[in-house]
Design a binder for these strands. Structure first.
Length: 571
RNA sequence: CGGUGUGUAGCGCAGCCUGGUAGCGCACUUCCUUCGGGAGGAAGGGGUCGGAGGUUCAAAUCCUCUCACACCGACCA
């Protein structure tokens, strides 16, 4: 491609509303432009990258035996009413009416449509298993779109749905998808981890998220230093400390702690480590007998609400008791609560239950207790895993300890079961000639988000550094003084033609008035991996200059060898 | 949804407090010089000052309403 015929919309200044580096660089490199909140146009350069991701995803999905389809973005409400999601789905579902006042929505996902399609087309177990996918624009009316393309309202997603007659078959396809996803992210050149994930409200037994590791990620991922265990912190199991609880050595005493509420304040005030203090949280129960429940974790730990709301007796979604409820029931304010003398159920985290001689609130404002011991001074009704894991915790698989890093969720696979097929009556005849509800799996990849995550992981102060598989162009050809030197012009034209004949995607910076510095800056910002600079000075000696985007020094290469060199390097 | 803040040229911003009819940098157009890491000079083009209403002789500036956008928040215990 000749730069003179291509829109290279780079800009020096960073827009003031771009927070994360990928957003800033995508704007500056001229990949995307914002149309409205969470809505972006893709310029030629950005679209080229997006298409590359798409192509790799498509190839690997086809290789894994999935069949491509394309379903409408606009979907009739009927289907959503049938699956029950018209009511369930919140304001993220953009609803509208057509000219006949018939209700429709913009598809945030396509389970309902695919289930309808398949129930009408597939009648026999002989046609199963089957896995259909599409690469399609989705719309989710996010409360707060942010980070550019990373959390946009309209985005490109690959979604696949598989159908089965039994769990074993679903498991088989699930495993194939797991492998295909690993192959995709490996080919894309990303540092990623498949992690165990929460299945959320959808249920089902198995779910993995694929995360690209990057500091700007919105999720915390825990993984083992010794094994391939990895899980979303929401899910990662905090295993109980070994051995039995130390025996009490102190007597329980009241201490005045005026105005000290937070764990940090209390531990500083009493000069004890946060790990020797317990925090007691009061949440809503789901039983009329026990409308409130106390949850106790160690002072240096955080409650994991997903784990907590799964426990018996606790209302889901997890809801904290309000100030008035606490005062009415316990007679103190938050900040002075402790397990001693509580009349409501007390559920204690493993680590907190392992403490002896700990500190806690006295259920009276401005008073704490020291030297408190379980059983002797207060009840434990239940011990459970209700905290987030922290770095250094033992890995649940017994190998190594946990480390925590931030991740960007780029893929999610899960076993849906029969949630949709049952609601929508999607059945086949099985071997015995009986009707049977199909079992489903679903598998998504955020195609546009992959582009942003690749940039989060690959950039420097000069701009984007594309992994080879994603680069919009492979080679940039940069002439010096093309408007003056006939020699430079002819050499470049010839190289341009020859490189294209070798099948390389070349950007020829052929603009007469472009200055060297500006061209180099653009090529670096845009992130083209290989660049060749051609000038009279080098040509005198039959040489050109080559530099890889990751290097800081030029290499001198013979004019006659450059074609061969690039062809070999880029393979 | 709640809190805060911002809307002035394609982008980044000043001007607003203290009303007098719009400016800077980058980008863009033309010409000259320059040309090995975002050149210099000269001359230009481009703005219903987010929108509506009001106050005033006069509104980007003051007042009211409205729209859009952005940031922060949903575990203090």
């Amino acid at each position: 491609m000749r730069a003179s015929q291509y829109l290279i919309a780079t800009q020096k200044e960073t827009p003031s509303d771009a927070e994360v580096i990928s957003h800033q660089l995508m704007i500056r490199a001229g990949m995307i432009r914002k149309l409205a909140a969470g809505l972006y146009s893709w310029l030629p350069l950005g679209l080229k990258v997006l298409r590359k991701v798409e192509a790799i995803v498509r190839e690997e999905m086809n290789r894994a035996g999935a069949q491509e389809v394309l379903m409408p973005v606009t979907q009739p409400a009927e289907l959503w009413q049938e699956s029950g999601r018209w009511e369930q789905y919140g304001p993220e579902l953009l609803r509208m009416q057509d000219r006949h006042s018939r209700p429709f929505c913009l598809g945030p996902t396509h389970e309902d449509v695919i289930t309808d399609l398949v129930r009408n087309q597939i009648r026999s177990y002989k046609q199963l298993p089957a896995n259909f996918y599409q690469i399609q624009t989705k719309f989710r009316d996010e409360i707060r779109p942010r980070f550019g393309i990373m959390r946009a309202r309209e985005f490109l997603m690959k979604d696949a749905y598989s159908f089965h007659t039994d769990q074993a078959s679903l498991q088989e396809t699930y495993d194939i998808m797991h492998k295909a996803y690993s192959a995709i992210f490996t080919r894309l050149g990303l540092d990623f981890r498949p992690v165990l994930a929460d299945t959320g409200s959808i249920g089902g037994s198995h779910s993995h998220e694929f995360h690209v590791l990057a500091a700007s990620g919105e999720d915390d991922i825990a993984f083992s230093t010794e094994s391939d265990y990895a899980a979303n912190v929401e899910m990662a199991e905090a295993i109980a400390p070994e051995g039995s609880r130390p025996s009490p050595s102190e007597t329980m005493q009241e201490v005045a702690t005026p105005g000290q509420h937070s764990i940090e304040q209390v531990s500083t005030f009493l000069d004890v480590p946060a790990a020797s203090v317990v925090k007691t949280l009061i949440v809503q129960g789901d039983d009329e007998e026990a409308p409130l429940v106390a949850l106790v974790v160690r002072g240096d730990h955080e409650l994991n609400d997903i784990k907590a709301e799964k426990l018996h007796g606790i209302a889901a979604p997890l809801t904290f008791a309000c100030e008035e409820q606490i005062r009415a029931n316990l007679g103190c304010s938050v900040g002075s609560i402790g397990p001693v003398g509580l009349k409501i159920p007390v559920i204690v985290d493993h680590s907190a239950a392992h403490l002896a001689d700990f500190v806690c609130g006295a259920n009276r404002d401005g008073v704490h207790l020291t030297g408190v011991n379980w059983e002797r001074d207060c009840r434990i009704d239940d011990v459970a895993d209700i905290r987030n894991v922290v770095p250094g915790d033992p890995s649940p698989d017994g190998k190594g300890v946990l480390e925590i890093k931030r991740g960007i969720e780029v893929g999610h696979i899960f076993q849906l079961g029969t949630k949709y097929s049952e609601a929508m009556n999607a059945k086949v005849l099985n071997e015995e000639g009986r009707e049977q509800v199909m079992i489903m799996g679903c598998y998504g990849i955020g195609v546009s988000r992959v582009v942003a995550s690749a940039i989060e992981q690959n950039h420097d102060e000069n701009g984007i550094i594309w992994p080879d598989a994603l680069a919009p162009f492979q080679v940039a050809l940069i002439p010096i003084n093309i408007q003056k030197s006939e020699q430079v012009r002819e050499t470049c034209e010839k190289l341009y033609t020859q490189l294209q004949e070798r099948g390389l995607d070349v950007l020829f910076m052929d603009e007469e008035k472009a200055r060297l510095g500006a061209m180099l800056a653009d090529v670096e910002l845009v992130g083209i991996p290989h660049r060749v600079v051609i000038g009279d000075r080098g040509l005198e000696n039959g040489e050109v200059e080559y530099r890889h985007r990751r290097e800081t020094e030029n290499r001198t290469i013979g004019l006659n060898d450059i074609i061969e060199f690039l062809t070999k390097t880029i393979e």
